[in-house]
Design a protein around this nucleic acid. Structure first.
Lengths: 204, 204, 204, 204
DNA sequence: TATGAATGAGGGTTCATTCAT
DNA sequence: GATGAATGAACCCTCATTCAT
């Protein structure tokens, strides 16, 4: 239950990588030197904490998943509606509280399924545990949404999840393009679209 | 207006690359030798037709965009509802008529925005032209949908496009995972979810 | 029974490595680039023929063993005394017919026993076969020597082999020092010492 | 004349390195961390006493040479035959009194001549002095052997030295292979072969 | 025209050395 | 004094690109 604690250098590496990923670069195009520079540490130092470049990715993803799960857990204690929670999430992403929004794709289609499966080589158990934690929260949130009348009770958890992931996937994609099709404050427009898509798709 | 015609070797290269991308591999992880092998031609031959590995990608994307635009154009001549057209599209993707469905992410969030912008190095004009063709079709389709009562007239083109791209992005992502959260025929379940998401998000 | 045939590039690599080893450098101190340069080919080319730096060593050793076994086989057909054969061997080494004499240590104490055992990873069978061929020749030569009255019949094959390896080991070691303790033509003095050591140790 | 005295940490480093070398590993394959671990001290501490990895080797060699010269000097005071002294030496090596026998190659062909020359960077004078001491003892021992009728008077010091070095080189090499060609107590067999080779080669 | 052998720039990784504690 | 975390030069190896055939 207790999350692993990370050394400052490890966290620097995580943040460095996420920052680079936020630039839209694929992991294959990110050099170890880039991560080191972004983290403000020496290249060799990375290998004191990680066994390989792949390991950096896998640990970064686990770290982020854990941060995200912790954040969700905390949100769940507040008595808020599903859509309020969604707004909090959009704000948190934008403020890069636990993840630069632009790094989202790294957790989605950016990774091949194989890579996502391999994610855990070193962390398989922790990752599995965290995934299950997140799934459990998800189930609770959807259940609450159905009770509140926010989510159409006829919709399956599977569809709800697909809706949300798609909306965020599109969000990150649009966000990356900065301007998108709409001209004034792009961030707000994007957020509104995410909110609207999810609302329309899930409301009774 | 006239699409460039491609030699058999070029088409072999396109199909080879799309086939590899369909495996979920990112372009950076695909070797030139892999493309040559998948295309059934020699590695050196690729360089007779393309100036670089990047060029292969950019030409493949243009080729696919053109194929897609041609397909849409053809569909538009038929008097079908927007949702029928959507079904045709889902079938076409599944039958890999112009694009292995799993290669879709390569055209979406898989590519950084920078890469998408660079797409055209060699093909900028052609690509721009084709994008505009597609946008024009899109506008016509959305307009038709609003007239038919299939699309809520209060929704902007921007939101409609975002909805459709998100749904397909999620589709490709789920498709790549083969099984997904739902057990029986995954392809049908996926298609139903795409259809349902778009319908619920756009209907009046 | 048929030795593998080698491409010109492979042979160039073998000769390049032996030439470097002849300089007395240990394998760990020889860079892949050094081998490539000594062989007169590109660094990348080496990896078209060998899977790793270790593989270059292991193949070079097998090649040399085979060359040596072939040479011995050929010598055995001539009706010469054991000491004449010894002289031929000393000459052949000096003329680098199959091995620069200074590279001899590479086949002796230069390599740890573990390395010698691992020698064959890729070539284990071929190496074993060649070692056995050499052992068989050795037995025949010692037997002939005993019949000729050149070798004391009371001496075991084991002691004879130890004597010869020690003498050549010392030879290579002295040879490497070029001058050694004796001033005029060092090569001849060395050769005479090898001959004398073996003769005195083995004669009846 | 007075040997340098060494601190306990220096001696720990010497012993650590010799122990590792006894495993048959070449100096290039031994990491500084390995030496530190084998010596039971911190890696940084090594650099308090030695200027570089090379320096550790060079000092270890000088240390061992001095230990050896002291041992020989002590043996010379005893009135024993050359062959008795040889036996004492074989026993001492086996009991690792001043040098693990398996580390012998490091002092022989294991090192390129260049390395042996460079040995003294920091210790050139001390090393030269010790070498000369050893040479002087050697001369006295050979002279005594000739007087005793143990060594053929017609043999030069040069040949005698070559014989002994070769025999020990072969000894170390065989020793490293543990089993060798002879099955029962390998150590005894090896020692017997050394003794026999030297005896047969040098006796009148 | 089509090819793949050859290449070397560039990447991931190791490890001798330094230096703050 | 003793340490080991931090470092980056230098290594092995990959792979996009070229070019002789």
């Amino acid at each position: 239950m207790q999350n692993k604690t990370y050394s400052p250098k490890e966290i620097a590496a995580f943040r460095g990588l996420l920052q680079l990923a936020a630039g839209g670069r694929h992991f294959s195009n990110i050099k170890v030197q880039d991560i080191a520079t972004a983290a403000g540490i020496g290249k060799g130092t990375l290998y004191e904490y990680f066994s390989s470049k792949e390991d950096i990715l896998s640990c970064t993803m686990l770290y982020t998943l854990q941060q995200f799960a912790d954040w969700i857990e905390q949100q769940m204690t507040r008595e808020q509606s599903v859509y309020d929670m969604l707004d909090s999430l959009l704000d948190a992403l934008e403020q890069e509280i636990f993840l630069p929004v632009s790094a989202l794709p790294m957790f989605g289609s950016f990774l091949s399924h194989e890579q996502q499966v391999e994610l855990g080589m070193r962390n398989r158990e922790k990752a599995q545990e965290t995934f299950e934690r997140l799934h459990e929260y998800e189930r609770q949130i959807f259940a609450r949404g159905r009770q509140n009348g926010e989510i159409d009770p006829s919709l399956s958890d599977c569809f709800c999840e697909y809706t949300i992931l798609s909306a965020f996937g599109g969000f990150a994609s649009q966000f990356g393009k900065k301007a998108g099709c709409c001209s004034d404050n792009p961030s707000n427009v994007c957020k509104n679209m995410v909110r609207q898509l999810i609302f329309r798709a899930l409301c009774p």
